[in-house]
Computed example of a mutant assay.
Amino acid sequence: MRIQTIVALTDFSTLAEHALDRAALLAAHHGAQLELLYAAEEQDAKFCDPQARLEQRARQLARRHELAVQAWPEAGAAAVLAATQRADLLVMDSRLHGRRAWPARATGLLARVLRASPCPVLVVQAAAQQPYAHALVHASGDAGGALQRSATGLQASATVELFHAARTLHGLRLACGEAFGRALRSRRQPAQPQQTRLRVSDAFEARRNRVGLAKGGLDAVRQLVVQQQSTRADLLVLAYVRRNLLRDLLQASKAHRLLTGPNGVACDVLLVPGAASAAAKRWSTMGGGWTRAAS
């Protein structure tokens, strides 16, 4: 079964509208059902009837993209978490992190979604004007190739770049050898029929990463940010592993660091359930699209 259901969240802010537009583009591309949900940390007083506004947006998107769009009457975090159980892809904007800066990484909507969602989560940060052209995949944590397949399944026409971050804890020389070794092994893998535009890169390609590694001050997240800015990739793909509330409170996740603050990325981010998640085993690809294996 290919992607059949995409759920998109909105609070009618500018960034949330970008998420709806991207979800509609993807739904039209995959021939999927699009479902809209109203989700806001604080309800805006100017939207006295959010459900009526949601239904209006559903009609607009249906006409514009010629697809089936449904506006769900449920709202709030509980409805969002329930929607992830039936969705093949959840699309939301990066602003929905919480009301307060520090605990938002643990108690905000995105954090709650990632702790419960069995489906990939696409966080939209840029206006959806065209299909994705360049997907940057964090290949260092993609031993089984699930992230590469996810990038291809989402947008088969995009160039997929497998980026290998350097492990600085073992020293620059060893990190260099490991990165180039992985890159060589990736180049020797048999070509995938659906992957016509594939490139491999590492942390030593961008000058800012080379300088940072020489000084010993760049971890994998910062290397990803530098590479994304250097290549102008419009989609970043990485795995996430479910974390508990306490861990999110004590330490920011890679996803949170990439999506917040001046040192984050400006492109969209696709978060795929990682190998440590049982839900990840349900995902495979068929004909350029995601599929869920029958349980």
Rank of each mutant, 00 (worst) to 15 (best):
L109A: 06
M92W: 02
Y240N: 01
A23Q: 12
L20K: 09
L96V: 04
Q195N: 07
G98N: 05
A139K: 01
I6V: 10
R199Y: 02
Q51R: 08
S230N: 14
A27R: 13
T260G: 08
V221C: 07
H138C: 10
R63N: 06
Q223K: 03
L109G: 08
R187A: 14
A58W: 09
A143G: 00
S277Q: 07
T231R: 15
F47C: 04
R59S: 04
R257C: 06
A104E: 06
G217C: 11
G264N: 02
M286L: 15
D88R: 11
V221F: 04
R115F: 02
F47D: 03
A179E: 06
G261L: 06
Q229W: 06
A143I: 03
S157M: 11
P118F: 03
G216T: 06
Q148W: 01
P193E: 00
L90M: 05
R207K: 12
G287Q: 14
R99W: 07
A203D: 03
Q155R: 13
G288V: 10
K46M: 07
V241S: 13
R188L: 14
L169Q: 15
A111Q: 01
A75S: 12
D248V: 00
E66A: 07
L213M: 09
V272T: 00
L147N: 01
R207P: 06
T231F: 12
A293L: 11
E74D: 14
A87G: 05
V113P: 01
L15N: 14
R282V: 03
A104P: 07
G171E: 14
T285Y: 11
L246Q: 09
F163S: 14
L36Y: 08
L174S: 15
A127G: 13
G177Y: 01
A8T: 02
A139E: 02
L147W: 00
C119S: 04
R185V: 02
S295T: 07
A104T: 04
A106T: 02
R112I: 02
R282N: 06
A27T: 11
R232F: 10
L25C: 13
A45G: 00
Q125P: 10
R99K: 12
L54C: 11
A87K: 09
A106C: 01
R22D: 06
Q129P: 09
P190F: 03
A275P: 07
G145P: 05
F180C: 12
A8W: 06
D49H: 13
R187Q: 15
D11H: 03
R187Y: 10
S186G: 09
L250N: 04
L96A: 12
D21Q: 14
S157K: 12
I6G: 10
A78E: 15
L238K: 00
K254F: 09
L169I: 12
Q125N: 15
L245H: 12
C267I: 00
G153R: 09
P131Q: 12
A266N: 10
P190L: 00
A71C: 10
R208V: 09
A276E: 13
Q51D: 15
H18C: 13
M1P: 14
E178D: 15
L96Y: 11
A71P: 15
R64P: 05
V7A: 08
P50R: 01
H134T: 15
L96D: 05
T159M: 13
L224R: 00
S284D: 14
A151H: 10
A126I: 04
Q228I: 11
T196F: 02
A280K: 05
S157D: 15
G98S: 02
L34C: 00
L37W: 14
V200N: 12
